[in-house]
Write a protein that binds this DNA or RNA. Structure first.
Lengths: 197, 197
DNA sequence: TTCCTAAGAGAACGGCCGTTCTCTAGGGTA
DNA sequence: TACCCTAGAGAACGGCCGTTCTCTTAGGAA
């Protein structure tokens, strides 16, 4: 086993444990025994727990956003459907066993004030999500994308949090319904704007 | 200083520290020195850290919901305004120095899987919030309160999370705009329903 | 004043955690 | 075979944390 594979194994174990139990509740030794990588090699690949946390958050960010974009791309042809497909994907995610909300919101709530690295990773993730939603919203309602995306972001975050606390039931479909209503409102105000000018 | 006053001081210190830094980052000794209450008395008033965490969450729940309801009651006369006033109050809260999101979402993200007491307190708080929103929504759009409240809850949670991560800017006003659009949609579908029947 | 109670201060204890160090064993090379 | 390098296992270390215990001191009752 070379360092590359060891890093992957460590990161896989860290992801599972950090996401399930939180950052501080998981010790390096838990990750060591779950990954089967020796402590010496673990510390050669990741120089500290902090570095491992950062790597966990970064990889989760990339994978999560890629999975969302892949689903939306393959599930929707029209811009409006793309936005609704976001909530379909959320529903699938919420129903996965072991779903426990947004890794970034959880990490931020736990260590956002204590660890600047965690706060920065969370901000990056949410800004990238907002940028993606803005792109979808701008395609659906040209000229109103920014404002609509800001609202959609709230609904997405709210769905995730509510699903995490209450269980999956209904959070995704309520989010989808809300998104549809917000889309309608944005489209209506756009046509009104066009008629006025 | 009697036990009653000591309990209050301890709870005040615990609230400030837990909310700012999270549950696990704050030690009993931090609370002891911040409150000026001796360790012996502290453990007489609260038999463990867990009990103190629970007391902190319970008091925060009561105070937070009372502050929201008081503001809404005094700021709005009509049901629709009451719902919008929720977001005005959120905007004031977000702007407070030291705002760091929802104490329950933070606690749940940190210890929701590890501590059943934290998970239960979070669920109670969010259910009470949903009940309150349902009551407001039912007054605003009779017959559609439940569905509207589910959507409003998502927007409220999303606003809080977004304000915590991104800073206060805009989360409350975007939430207010989204709530207005959702209210409009619910009212429109209600009048359509009335006309049809 | 003398005794008793209770409270405060903080030492002590057991345990865990992140990180480093040591010791041992094994595999490649001459 | 003899040597060296590396990696793994896990002990060791320093530090913190929740909780309990001890010692001292002050105040009230007789």
């Amino acid at each position: 086993m070379d360092d590359e594979e060891a890093s992957q194994r460590v990161l896989d174990a860290a992801e599972a444990l950090f996401y399930e139990r939180g950052l501080q509740s998981v010790g390096i030794d838990d990750i060591r025994s779950a990954s089967g990588v020796s402590l010496k090699r673990l510390y050669r690949c990741f120089h500290s727990k902090q570095e491992l946390v950062t790597a966990y958050l970064d990889r989760t960010d990339r994978r999560w956003r890629a999975a969302l974009a892949d689903y939306v791309r393959s599930a929707a042809d029209h811009p409006r459907d793309a936005i609704l497909a976001v909530f379909d994907w959320l529903g699938l995610w919420f129903a996965e066993p072991g779903f426990r909300g947004c890794a970034f919101i959880n990490a931020h709530g736990e260590l956002g004030e204590v660890s600047p690295a965690v706060a920065a990773a969370t901000r990056r993730h949410k800004e990238a999500l907002l940028a993606y939603l803005t792109q979808l919203a701008e395609q659906a309602v040209p000229g109103a994308g920014r404002a609509l995306a800001n609202q959609l972001l709230l609904v997405v975050e709210g769905s995730i949090v509510t699903a995490a606390v209450h269980g999956a039931s209904g959070a995704a479909s309520a989010g989808r319904a809300a998104a549809a209503a917000l889309l309608d409102a944005a489209e209506m105000s756009r046509t009104a704007r066009l008629h006025r000018d």
